[in-house]
Amino acid sequence: MATASDLVAPFLDALGQGFVLAAAPDGTPVLSTPCRFFTGDPVEIAWWEEAGALHLSDRGGLVQSLLLKGLDVLEPGPNRERLQGLLQTQGLRLHGGAIVASATRERLGSDIEGLMQALMDGQVAVRESAAAQVAGEPVIYNAVRRTLDASGARYREGMRITGHLGRRYTVDFELAFRTEDIIRAIMVVATDRTLEMAERWNFRFHDIRRARPALHRLFLVAEDATWSDDAHRTIVEACEQVIAPGEQDALSEYLRTARRIA
């Protein structure tokens, strides 16, 4: 196999300044580029030959940068599906945590440029689409209805249930502390961004419980969700903190009679 310099040297001038050639610990040639992910890490491209074909990879840089920004694209879920869909449109594939592309010796320079551009586009597209997504309200309302119906509670439609992964968390949190007549709080973990939801709400309830021990809490989990081990563990612990022994009955009574439990 040709050395890293042999293969890339003809293209370095065309690629421009700021490129550094090196070898990874396993000896694979690596090109460090001046492009950077959101994390500030440089985009690095590795290449190798396999069965007579040339391949490029980002050495796991894109997935790592998304993970560090709170987007878990390793676990099954909408974030990973979004990334895979985006990569497919650009002829790339996700191998574990690395983005892999095919290349040719003759067009290696432009293939590297193409992969760099795809990585830059990918991190922007995945982060923006994830930021714009909120926990689906129909899912949350259905889960609340199912639980209330199962406990025989009477309730009015249109009650306000919040808990998006955005600014409204803050509003709910402060309201629960400031407003004395709020005696009920509902925690919902829906199908999307499960671990993040569980962790944030768990923290929230932890503080509310200390400040307002009389606050009644209801914990709902969407049954049809696929839980990661981490999300499952967090939810189990949150349930233990939120629902004290006998509290579920008191809550059901309150929901049935609308009277505050002493």
Partner: peptide, 13 residues
């Protein structure tokens, strides 16, 4: 994490 099997040039982080 690391890919399984790792792609050439990939390292654990």
């Amino acid at each position: 994490h690391c890919s399984d099997p790792p792609t050439p040039g990939e390292t654990i982080s």
